[in-house]
């Protein structure tokens, strides 16, 4: 190959590369414009819609974190402060006390505290709660439904695809804007 030929090939290659580069830039521009039309500035986070959730207990086992970033929340304005809390006690408990054998919660994450007679306050210890939702079933079945499961964003690592959302049988996992990252039950929305 003579020098001239080599130069010619090199020039041709450079020209083709430049053209393809331009084409790629054009495609990027088009993609950005297309997405720009429907993109949002704010990022989204995962949340459980309590109105769809069936408390199947998959949240406890499918989160990438151990324990799960899903925790039970007690929304106090809806709570009946019952003595016989069906979210706290097993069906037909031996006695209405804090004995582990009486509790629904497998890890003892619900703290029961006596207030003025006959009311009891139920708080969730989020460091202990595993998000299994057993208490949610009890509360919704016979109580007011003030217990529900929520993704706690101080724990959630916000995976691109939530591994609980993938297995959620009732499609309750939704992406919500990061500025209003919680969906509480109906009463909250009304007030």
């Amino acid at each position: 190959m003579t020098e001239e030929q080599t130069n010619k090939t090199a020039n041709r290659r450079q020209f083709i590369r430049g053209g393809l580069r331009g084409a790629a830039l054009f495609v990027f521009g088009a993609v950005t414009t297309l997405l720009g039309l429907q993109s949002r500035k704010e990022r989204t986070v995962w949340q459980i819609d309590p109105n769809k959730c069936i408390a199947c207990s998959k949240c406890a086992t499918n989160c990438v974190l151990t324990p799960s970033a899903v925790k039970c929340v007690n929304y106090f304005p809806m709570c009946g402060y019952c003595d016989l809390c069906t979210g706290y006690f097993e069906p037909n408990p031996n006695a209405l006390n804090t004995g582990a054998e009486n509790q629904v919660c497998p890890v003892g994450a619900i703290i029961r505290q006596a207030l003025e007679d006959p009311y009891y306050e139920y708080r969730i210890d989020e460091n202990v709660c595993i998000g299994c939702g057993k208490c949610v079933v009890g509360c919704v079945q016979f109580g007011n439904g003030s217990f529900f499961l929520q993704v706690r964003h101080d724990k959630c690592v916000n995976c691109n695809e939530c591994s609980i959302a993938k297995v959620c049988p009732s499609d309750a996992f939704v992406r919500v804007p990061a500025s209003s990252p919680y969906i509480f039950r109906a009463k909250e929305n009304q007030s």
Partner: peptide, 29 residues
Amino acid sequence: FISFGIERFPPPDFEPGTYTMPQATKPLP
């Protein structure tokens, strides 16, 4: 009934000043 809450037991009216109802926390991302 799992999909919605029903108010079977009306929330108690505490004597004013005896009990402050805790807020359900909402830790931010």
